[in-house]
Amino acid sequence: MKQINNPFSLEGKRYLITGAASGIGRSTSIILSEAGADLILVDINHEGLVETQKKCNPSDKLLVLDLANSSIIKKELLAVVMEFGKLDGFVHLAGKSYIAPLKIVNEEKCKDIFSLNTYAAIELAKTFINKKVYNGVNGSIVLISSVYGVVGSAANVGYAMSKSALHGITKSLAIELASKKIRVNCIAPGFVKTNMLDSASGMFDEKYEEKLNNLHPLGLGTPEDIAYSIVYLLSDASKWVTGSIFNIDGGFTAL
């Protein structure tokens, strides 16, 4: 019987994943490994990275890096890619939430959130297109924003700024990098059950989770729900997709 080529396979591909030490980043790393990819796992939390690696390939590289410090990203990445081999793409999952009503929003905190959630994506892309880093064919960049980059929510102005900016970055880079055969897409997740969500929930009353559930016709998501969409966007199954924002949100933005 003729073997059918699997367009979702990531066999022999190499990717860099930020935010790999926990939550959606950890699940994505595990699922990408299962799909055959080799990974550079990046996070500021070393212990978390070690835990993630236990469920990925032993040959995957770990890189402890503060992505909010843009001045060190290129140097650190070049060094690890020299050992690991050239990349087919990256996923920028690292991010912080910032729940703060307008009265309390401050510039320093906004810059801090912007550095990690947003500007790091640009610096990563800048490094990725370097000939020493990019393998030159079928490149794919996946950025992770949020439903709050798409729709409004009180007490979220700083976070929304950082996430909605990723949509502009996605479209702009999709055009700029198309000639290099690099696709750039973005996923805007709804609320997913992670530690980040648990710590945010602690600020609210006991009905908060119930309210959140009601915002999602399909209920709250799991990290795997996001990870599978990342597999699609990295793989050749999405070879004609670029500059797109995918709402993976259990129906949140359909309401």
């Binding site: 729940i99 703060a100 009265k103 309390i104 401050n106 600020m203 609210f204 009353d205």
Partner: peptide, 22 residues
């Protein structure tokens, strides 16, 4: 509710404490 959230964020930034609405 927004003022309560402001107090939570303020207290976290200024005093390093984690408060809940309750």
């Amino acid at each position: 509710s927004l003022t309560i959230l402001s107090i939570i964020a303020f207290s976290n930034e200024k005093y390093g404490t984690a408060l809940s609405t309750i």
